[in-house]
Design a protein around this nucleic acid. Sequence first.
DNA 1: CCCGCTGCATAGCCGATGCCTATGAACATG
DNA 2: CATGTTCATAGGCATCGGCTATGCAGCGGG
Lengths: 317, 317
Amino acid sequence: MQRGSVGPMHFQQLTYFVAVAEARHFTRAAEEVHVSQPSLSQQIKALERELGAELFSRARGNITLTDAGEALLPLARRILADADTARHEVQELVQLRRGRIRLGATPSVCTGLLPEVLRTFHGTHPGIRLLIEEGGSHDLVRELARGALDLALLVLPLPAASPALTTVELLQEDLVVVSSAGRPAPGRRGAVHIADLENEPLVMFRHGYDLRELTVAACRAEGFEPSFTVEGGEMDAVLGFVRAGLGIAVVPRMVAVRAGQDLRTTPLASPGLRRTIALAHRSDVEPPRAARELQRMLLGAPPAGPAAGGGPGPSGG
Amino acid sequence: MQRGSVGPMHFQQLTYFVAVAEARHFTRAAEEVHVSQPSLSQQIKALERELGAELFSRARGNITLTDAGEALLPLARRILADADTARHEVQELVQLRRGRIRLGATPSVCTGLLPEVLRTFHGTHPGIRLLIEEGGSHDLVRELARGALDLALLVLPLPAASPALTTVELLQEDLVVVSSAGRPAPGRRGAVHIADLENEPLVMFRHGYDLRELTVAACRAEGFEPSFTVEGGEMDAVLGFVRAGLGIAVVPRMVAVRAGQDLRTTPLASPGLRRTIALAHRSDVEPPRAARELQRMLLGAPPAGPAAGGGPGPSGG
DNA sequence: CCCGCTGCATAGCCGATGCCTATGAACATG
DNA sequence: CATGTTCATAGGCATCGGCTATGCAGCGGG
């Protein structure tokens, strides 16, 4: 781009110029743009000096454009219109009337938490496009770092090799055991101990699900390696397998609740298992305005009010 | 300073903004636009304040556009490009690389003087469009006043009801008598007296030609009313009639010279008839740059060939 | 015929603003 | 921990745009 010489030449001057061209009268044009007549005259003169050509024929009481002025007028109008458009475009982004959020979330969050939240957000800001990327926390972290996501809902703790992300704990969800309603309830006295899982047929998610890592880790902590009747598959598939009586599965309570009535939900015995869902974004760039608004909404503050407020403080990732 | 729509927002700032967006680096952008880094930072900040949105994500060594910046960039580029275009457009007019001259001229001038002059002018300024309007002096004066012409070559004196026009005498041209080479020469001793016209068959132009008024007035001054064998028709038609032997005609010498060899040219006896061709334009508005240049060429450099008093043969009569 | 009115240009002053240099702060690196 | 890089901030200076007052050129009314 050739920014050869933008030089002095002000939007003001173009505004004044157009005003005079329209009013064909300096004094009235000056009133029009709310400036004194001498100031306007000076700026017109300055513009003429800058461009090296007279723009108006100053015949007493009959101001007309010269050919140079005639040539300038349409461009001046367009420039001013563009400036106005620029202002409005930016304003629309600021006012959340336009925009885009690229949101990453883990499958269980997508299934459990997101629909309601996004419904509310979209209701408030119908002009914002919502792009959801479903994936394991590991993938989401990578996408955040790449700049492919503005925001992500993922599971803490973050994978070791996480780039600089800012995370805010959002909620903790209990994990529960789901089993087919047509089979005997797992566990003892209405609760399932981790140790019980050694003897239960387990249906397990594919690699990449945080739930898988969490469950396996819990079993190992109890001193056994879990074995799976069926493994691999997304959330819906796993629930389907369980519903079919192939085994039991450990899933977030939120998911279990929504899973339907032919599935039995059994809590895990104390201390049980829980996991922390957090909101994350890159530390080095502020998310777009719309994403910040969604963030605020997720963190529980009233959508209109300023952020910060209640939730847990940010923590490095 | 309230300025509702345009507000403070400078071309400089947009230039700086685009530079930073392209360099993704404040310091280098500052060098690019030849300004100190703090100045550039300040202006960017001022622009952000003005627009009410951050334009860049300032991550150390990784400056990126925010969504607001992304929205602004194309408009900023276009505005700067338009400003550049405006500058060049006006410059082209000033440098006579583009433009238009609306030139009025009487038929005899169109036939005699103009072709050579316009050839020269067009050779020097090929980008200037030349719009010629042929008409009687009366019409030309009216068109000048309406602003439909920039410049006119007409015959002095001007009609009585002339608006404020500035005229400069350009040249005086002798009128001569043309007759068919195949008929006896009119007049006596190689010259025609006005009085002789009473007994010669006259071919006369249509109403509106200055030549008509001039010739008729001369006859009346000699005490007779001329009668016409043929009348009405433009210059070429009149010459054709004369060539066909229908009569003789009084025409500018310049025209007679170019009329061809089957026409005889006889001077009028002293004092003869002559008329003054002048260049005229409105007094209240300066003609466009290109028209002024043509004016200069006409006044300053009398083109070679059958011009002015110094043409072929004595200009006196 | 002079006078006042209209309408743009000019003069002089003042506050605002941009640019500069110097310096600070945050982060990366050896 | 010292150092370098990079953007932000501070203070001084000159410029510049805006204002009021005034000048000057036509034009119309008394």
